[in-house]
Amino acid sequence: MATKEATLPQANAEYRWHHNLEPALFTHSPDNAFPNHVGHFLHPTRVTLALKDPNRDEEFLWKSRDHRKNRHVKYTPNQDKSRHGRNSFVGIAHMVRLEYWNVSWWVAIAFTLGSVIWVVNGFYSFLPFVDTSFAQSIAGIGWTAWVGATVFELGSILGVLEAWNRGETANFGWGVRRALGQENASDSNGFAVNSSSEGKAGDLKHQRKWIWFSSDSKYWHELGFLAAFAQFWAATIFWISGFTALPSIQDAISTRTGVLDGVFWTPQVIGGMGFVISSSLLLLETQKRWYMPNPASLGWQVAIWNFIGAIGFTLCGALGYTAQTSTKAAYQSSLSTFWGGWAFLIGSILQWYESVNSV
């Protein structure tokens, strides 16, 4: 036991570990994707949890994204329903559940709905270029852009709330509690759990207060919060272009190039770049090293598809500056919205799957 515990101060001195632990556990090998001169500023995205008992060598890999996404909650609160998808088919079946208690589910649903609206917007924008039987609908483009941007804004607000309300106790969920043999413990979502029944109906009691706003500086060291914060401001700026896409506003500014560029195309470019930054941070959260992709990770797949979607939305705005004078630019701008919306939809559906299935 002395050998194990000796590694703890060194790890904590090098990284900003800040979560609570079960008394019988200690951490070692905390890590994130960045080099030391950058990584020391950020909390670890992966930590190994081990038992202090020298006669037991169980270890569990804790991941910050799984922690934030409530993937350590194995049973639906107050119900006898397992959240563990034994295989992909079971996991897909879980997507019909209404996990109203799970903020990560609301985030996924909001972005899925918003992405569907943007796919519709992409059809409105792009189909007239490939099939002349489809007339361009300024109203269809404008209203879907505004509604889609508004839903994305709502999803980004929920994303910040999700980051603020991740549990304070770091564990690997039910595997840790079984290894500890505890009768009562607290899961990462702040629920009291009776491990003898693995948290089935009647054993979950809400204990943690919901956080609507926090100025605690610890969040600025978490990649998940930084990504959510960047996404919020990106969605807020992007919403301006959704608002100015409304038909009555477009009619007023469409012939005034400077105004159109300033209040319609530029917010798309800046907002799209913000989405690129946000998805890049989420990619890094799931990687062992900043230069090593991790395609086997579900969270990484969510982030990469959102990254592709963000590139598409950024290109839409960038190409839009010359769309009025160049048919090719107008074509590519609309096409970027089309494939960007589909990429966001794929990422959102994967996030939906992730939010309803425990690890």
Rank of each mutant, 00 (worst) to 15 (best):
I240N: 03
G258K: 05
L281I: 06
L284H: 00
G224W: 05
V269M: 03
V269G: 09
P247T: 10
E285D: 14
T257L: 12
Q287V: 11
V276C: 12
A245D: 06
I253E: 05
V276I: 14
L223S: 11
P247Y: 05
A230S: 15
P293W: 12
V259Q: 11
V269C: 06
A227I: 04
W220M: 13
S278L: 09
T286Y: 04
G274Q: 14
A227Y: 07
F225G: 11
K218W: 12
S280I: 06
N294A: 15
I237L: 11
D251P: 00
S248Y: 09
I277G: 04
L284D: 09
W233H: 12
P247I: 02
E285S: 12
T255H: 13
D251G: 11
P247F: 02
P267G: 14
S278A: 15
A245N: 08
T236G: 07
P295T: 10
P295D: 08
E285H: 06
T244A: 01
F225S: 05
I270D: 01
L282F: 15
A234I: 02
W290G: 01
L282K: 14
Q268L: 13
A252C: 01
A228I: 09
A230N: 02
F229G: 02
Q231W: 11
P295F: 14
M273P: 00
S241I: 08
T286Q: 15
A234Y: 04
S241A: 12
G299M: 10
S241R: 01
L226T: 00
S241P: 03
A296Q: 15
I277C: 01
F232M: 10
G242H: 01
T244H: 06
I270P: 00
T244M: 05
T266H: 02
H221K: 13
Q287F: 10
G242W: 02
R289S: 15
Y291Q: 08
H221C: 07
G299A: 09
S280P: 01
Q287M: 15
M292T: 12
G242E: 05
Y291L: 04
F229R: 10
S248T: 05
V276E: 02
S280F: 15
P293M: 12
S278D: 07
S254A: 09
G262Q: 12
K218A: 08
V263R: 04
W290N: 01
P293H: 12
G262V: 06
S280W: 13
E285W: 01
F229S: 06
L223H: 04
L246E: 00
M273I: 13
G258A: 07
I277Y: 03
